[in-house]
Design a protein around this nucleic acid. Structure first.
Length: 364
DNA sequence: GAACCGTGGTC
DNA sequence: TGACCAAGGTT
């Protein structure tokens, strides 16, 4: 990289590390360098802000303090602990990967790139993050922060939404990373991205490495990084129903094994089809139940996902009879006491419905 | 590659 | 309020 020829690497490292030493945030996972704790924190921090993660991290580490504890937990409990944090495959992948570490590595997180990367849910960024932060090995850990900071420092105009672009930045990191303090170096770049070199209105006047920044020199820091816009999420109209039987039990349903909100629980729902609710009743009859839809609880409950918007009309009704016990047993439906609904992991979209029913909260 | 996967905060 | 953003990985 030509731009690195006259670029003061040593001065950059010293100024960056000095700033990090003086300004780094006191975060729960920075208190000790337990590879398991670093690992859990890095998975939670994927696409998620520090302030959001902290309470989940505390709760999760309290429930599963060690690899052994998490490996021995059942998946339902793991999902329940993750409830509300989103991207639930992260939790299931982490659970599976921890079991692999227990089985194949005697319960010790491996300390080489290949083995770490082969763990479920650990991609190139997280592998580099664990290697550098937990084991102090000089490996690049390129996330959105790093790409933003480096695109400005070195005037990189490649679209960071493209997968291939990450490799460009990994190459730069390999050139400029501190061999003496790779853990602090990687964290310092990310911390700089989070606190100073922000997406909008970066605080260049406060930046400890502003004299090294080519974007600032040309006044184009606000134009970087280049990032292609995502396509707008598509609206999907849904119907959900809260059904009660003659002894007051509530019907809930576990979602499919893969895809959106996999293995999470919900109230039975379908994509809105017919006006007369046969869309719902036919679906439930496939689960062996005869039901009667009686009234609407709420309309247009919106929930926005990354690539999808649900607009849910919520109804209530009763289970007339269990028409086919065998079908019901084979289905993913389950009758539970209302006070026990809380035992099951529900996504936020359905927590909104629970809040409406149980606590009378406003639906938005 | 590009689409799929959640949620909450900010401007 | 809508669009954007956040310590990405899997398919």
């Amino acid at each position: 990289m030509e731009k690195l020829q006259r670029w003061d690497i040593q001065g950059f490292q010293e100024e960056l590390l000095q700033w990090y030493c003086e300004n780094k945030r006191d975060l729960p996972w920075r208190r000790e360098k337990d590879p398991y704790k670093i690992w859990v924190s890095e998975i939670m921090l994927q696409q998620t802000k520090v302030d959001t993660v902290i309470p989940y991290y505390e709760r999760f580490m309290n429930a599963f303090p060690t690899i052994e504890a998490l490996a021995n937990a059942d998946e339902e409990t793991v999902l329940k602990t993750w409830e509300g944090l989103g991207y639930y495959s992260r939790a299931r992948n982490l659970h599976q990967a921890v079991k692999e570490v227990k089985e194949n590595y005697g319960g010790a997180v491996p300390d080489n790139k290949e083995d770490i990367h082969n763990l479920r849910g650990v991609g190139p960024y997280t592998a580099g993050a664990i290697l550098s932060i937990a084991f102090n090995i000089p490996a690049p850990a390129v996330d959105g922060n790093v790409m933003r900071v480096l695109s400005r420092l070195f005037l990189v105009y490649d679209d960071i939404m493209k997968g291939a672009t990450r490799k460009i930045f990994e190459g730069i990191v390999e050139e400029i990373i501190s061999e003496d303090a790779p853990s602090d170096f990687n964290q310092a770049i990310m911390e700089l991205g989070a606190l100073i070199c922000t997406p909008r209105s970066p605080a260049c006047l406060l930046c400890p490495v502003q004299r090294h920044c080519l974007a600032r020199e040309e006044g184009v820091q606000e134009q970087l990084p280049v990032k292609k816009k995502k396509t707008a999420p598509q609206l999907k109209r849904m119907k959900a129903v809260v059904l009660v039987n003659h002894v007051g039990q509530v019907l809930i349903e576990q979602r499919q094994e893969t895809g959106l909100l996999a293995k999470m629980w919900q109230f039975p729902n379908v994509e809105a089809g017919t006006e007369d609710h046969s869309d719902l009743t036919v679906e439930l009859r496939n689960g062996g139940l005869l039901v009667n839809i009686e009234a609407d609880i709420a309309q247009h409950v919106r929930h926005v996902f990354t690539h999808l918007i649900w607009e849910i009309d919520v109804y209530r009704g009763t289970i007339t009879m269990v028409e086919n016990e065998a079908l019901f047993q084979q289905s993913r439906l389950k009758l539970v006491e209302p006070e026990n609904v809380d035992w099951y992991p529900f996504p936020v979209s359905h927590q909104k419905i629970i809040d409406k029913l149980l606590k009378g909260a406003a639906l938005t």
